[in-house]
Design a binder for these strands. Structure first.
Lengths: 182, 182
DNA sequence: CCTCAAGTGGACACGGTGTCCACTTGAGTC
DNA sequence: GACTCAAGTGGACACCGTGTCCACTTGAGG
């Protein structure tokens, strides 16, 4: 059965309020109660849908990530299939940096707790990179995939940019990483 | 003025109790109150020295890290000065993986909050790696240093080992990383 | 208009945090 | 060995965020 009209309205209010708060203050500084109040909704209503902040951040990110995942699977090269692995990896890095740039607070919010590696998205990125590593004939692609994804950790991205490092420099460094390793 | 005798005794009790609890349950599952009780000490006494769990974990790690830092600065090659950058980086990776293997719960505990990059130790590792990158003539060593350190994130290490990846495989993957990039 | 399941919201109990302050204890002094 | 007092101690307290629970409201289909 479909969602009731008022429920859908509240879901939208919650997501809008949460996105606003996350980007304004950073996910760590936002409580469930803040979100409920900002959305004009009771705490019970909030918990009915989202067990914690991470779930809300994941919901907010979902759309953006899905789009990138789609392109990786079926888009044009070099992001999509067709280009040599090293170039595809470099393109993937560039896309991820851009995603971090736009949604870093959300990505970080999605990792409340220790969720980073257990989230569905990480599994997807991991598989993608592992397949690239395999295609390039790398030794132990399974471990290499994690190593290649490590520099995309959102805390690192935030730390670098807060130190004044531009996203472009990060992308450039990752491009050489891709070129050297695959 | 030096520390009073009872104070020193309590500090020792606190550190011993904390180390035990951290390794037994993982830092996230240990409260300040747990530590105080296990050490047979009041909460006030605990807070007098350590504002939070991270401070305790840092104190516990300090000794181990100092030893490695000493070797990096003044030990024999390839860890110490003298060997080519790529080899020194590989040796550093191996030493860090070993340190993670032995003290992963502590390293993770030391990162409660977002401290990873603001801790003194990270700065040291970062400088070390940056100098190696410079010596190897890499472009933008400043950014590369962070990228090269990213695969040593303790959460990643724990995730990998919990998936059944042996520390040796991790070290091997990092060795090729070092060889290719410097 | 009626019904009832879906949805709502706030009260509540719980657990951890960090502070505060009255008390105790150790170490120098004579 | 008694005296002094700053350093050190510990537990009571107030606060905050979490997650649950349940009596009430609301919307959609008959």
């Amino acid at each position: 059965m479909p969602e009731r009209a008022d429920a859908a309205r509240n879901r939208a209010k919650i997501l809008a309020a949460a996105e606003e708060l996350f980007t304004a203050r950073g996910a760590a500084e936002v409580t469930m109660e803040d979100i409920a109040r900002a959305a004009g909704v009771g705490r019970g209503t909030l918990y009915r849908r989202y067990p914690d902040r991470a779930a809300i951040a994941v919901a907010l990110l979902d759309e953006h990530e899905r789009r990138l995942q789609e392109v990786l699977l079926r888009g044009d090269p070099p992001l999509g299939p067709g280009a040599p692995p090293a170039e595809r990896l470099a393109a993937f890095y560039a896309a991820m940096v851009e995603l971090l740039e736009r949604h870093a607070p959300l990505v970080l919010g999605a990792e409340v707790g220790h969720s980073r590696f257990t989230t569905g998205a990480y599994g997807f990125w991991r598989t993608h990179v592992r397949i690239l590593a395999e295609a390039a004939g790398a030794a132990d692609p399974d471990v290499l995939a994690d190593v290649l994804l490590a520099p995309l950790a959102p805390e690192l991205f935030l730390h670098q940019t807060s130190r004044g490092v531009s996203p472009e420099r990060i992308t450039a460094a990752l491009r050489t990483l891709a070129a050297r390793l695959l």
